[in-house]
Design a protein around this nucleic acid. Structure first.
Lengths: 228, 228
DNA sequence: ATCAACTTACTTACTGGTCAGTAAGTTGAG
DNA sequence: CTCAACTTACTGACCAGTAAGTAAGTTGAT
C-alpha cells in the first residue's frame, strides 16, 4: 500500500517461527504463503468479520482446520496477513528503504499508480482499516501504529523540503501530513466504488501537489472567496 | 455527515409508509426511530456484518423479532437507517438547502467541526462506506449515489468560484472535487483511530483550502522540488 | 356508546444455516 | 520411527428469519 518498512514491530503477533524451533520444511512455508495470499483475497473481498476460514481454506485446497493448524486462530491469521503484505511490498522495492526527502511525495504518487493496478490489495486496506475502528477489533493496533509511523515519515519529508526551500517550518506540517495520507485513502475508497470515474494516480498527484504547495505557499483563506 | 439532501431517491427501500395505507399510530413511529437510533449505534460500533439484530433490539427493550416486525429484514433496516441519518441531518439545517457557491467549502469545514462532536455518526459512515465495497454489500448503491452526488455538488461550487475569480475552468475541477471528499473521509478515519492527535476541523480546513487554491493557482509541480 | 371484527405490535419458540475452534486419527516425508 | 501436515468429525455458539400466538388498540355498524 505505502511500501512501509517499519511497522508494528511490537505488535501482539505470536509469530511462532522465531529462530530455532521445529524447522519447518520449504513446502510448509510455501503453503503458509498460499494461505496468506488467499486471506488477502477473502478478507479484501468480504471483510474480516464476513470472510470465513473455510473460504480461505478452499482456495488452497485444504480444510478450514488445516488453516487453523498453521495459524492457530482467525485473528492471528489476519494479523500475520497484514504484516506479510507490508513485507512483500518492501521486497518489491528496488531500494530497501523509503525515500526520505521530498522524493517521498513522488514515491507516494508512484504508489498510487501501482495501487491502481491492484484493486485487491487496495480493498484489503480500505476495508480493514475502517473495520479496525469498531469495538475491540484485532487489527486496530496495527493501523494505529501504521498511521502514526506514516504521518511521521511524511512530516520528516516536509521538514527536509522546507529547509531545502529556505522556508521556516510552518505549523501546518502536521495537518498536511495527515491530509496527504487521508486523501490517498479517501480516493482509494471512491475509486473502488467508481473505478471508471476516478483516476487514482492522477487525482492523487493533484491532491498531494496541492497540499505540498499549501504548506510552502499557503495562499488565500477560504473566507476570502466569499462574495466579491 | 455532509448534510446531504438529494440522495438515493430511486433506491430500493420499500418504505411502506406511502400515502394512505395502514395509518401507523404515533407510538409506532417513535419506536421505529428508537430502533433506527440503536441501529446507528450498533452498526457504527460493530459494523453491519458483525452487528446483530438482537443487540439492536435489546437497546430498545424488545426482541429481535420485534425489530424484524418493523423492518422486515436486517438489510432493509440498514438501508432505512442510512436514509434516516441523512434526513435528520437535513432537518438540523437552518436553511433547507446546501449553499451552492464557494460558501459550500466553508459549509464543509463547518460540517467537519460538527462531526468532531459526534464520533458515533462519523464512525457509522466510515465503517459502512468502506464495508460497502465488499462483495454484494447492500449499502453499496447508497454510497455510490452519495459520492456521485457530492462530487457533482462540489464541482458546481468550483465552477461558480472560478467564474467569480475570473479564471477559466481548469481541468482539475473533477480531481479537486473527489479530493476534497476524500480528504474529509480519510481524516475522519485517522481521527477515529487517534482522537487526540488529529484536529478534525482544523486539519480539514487546511486541506480544503490547499485543494481550492490548487485549482485556482496550481503552483509548482512536485518534480520541481527534487534536488535543488 | 358499545361491542364485534379486525389490525398492529409485539413475544416465545423454533428452524436451518454458518462458523471458529477442538480432538482424534491418518499419511507421508525425512 | 517420528513428527509435521494435514483430514474427518464434532461441538457449542450464534444468528437471521419464520410461525404461531397474544394483548392491546382501532374501526365501523348498530
Amino acid at each position: 500500500m505505502l511500501d512501509l518498512i517499519v511497522v508494528a514491530e511490537g505488535s501482539t503477533v505470536p509469530h511462532e517461527a522465531k529462530s530455532n524451533m521445529p524447522r519447518t520444511r520449504p513446502a510448509t512455508q510455501r503453503k503458509r504463503r498460499e494461505i496468506l495470499d488467499a486471506a488477502i483475497d477473502i478478507f479484501g473481498n468480504k471483510g474480516y468479520a464476513n470472510g470465513t476460514l473455510a473460504e480461505i481454506a478452499e482456495q488452497v485446497d485444504i480444510t478450514h482446520a488445516g488453516v487453523l493448524h498453521h495459524f492457530g486462530s482467525k485473528q492471528n491469521l489476519l494479523l500475520e496477513m497484514l504484516t506479510y503484505r507490508d513485507e512483500t511490498d518492501v521486497a518489491d522495492l528496488d531500494e530497501h528503504h523509503i525515500p526520505n526527502g521530498p522524493e517521498l511525495f513522488l514515491h507516494l504518487v508512484r504508489t498510487a499508480l501501482v495501487n491502481s493496478r491492484r484493486a485487491g490489495v487496495v480493498q484489503v486496506y480500505t476495508v480493514l482499516s475502517a473495520e479496525s475502528v469498531t469495538d475491540d477489533h484485532p487489527a486496530r493496533p496495527f493501523f494505529e501504529d501504521r498511521y502514526s509511523t506514516l504521518r511521521g515519515l511524511v512530516a520528516d519529508a516536509f521538514r527536509v523540503l522546507c529547509e531545502q526551500e529556505g522556508i521556516a517550518e510552518p505549523a501546518t506540517i502536521g495537518a498536511a501530513s495527515a491530509s496527504i495520507l487521508a486523501v490517498m485513502d479517501g480516493l482509494q475508497l471512491q475509486w473502488l466504488l467508481h473505478p471508471q470515474d476516478i483516476e487514482l494516480a492522477e487525482t492523487s498527484e493533484f491532491a498531494i501537489r496541492a497540499i505540498v504547495n499549501g504548506v510552502l505557499h499557503p495562499g488565500p483563506e477560504l473566507s476570502q472567496y466569499i462574495r466579491g
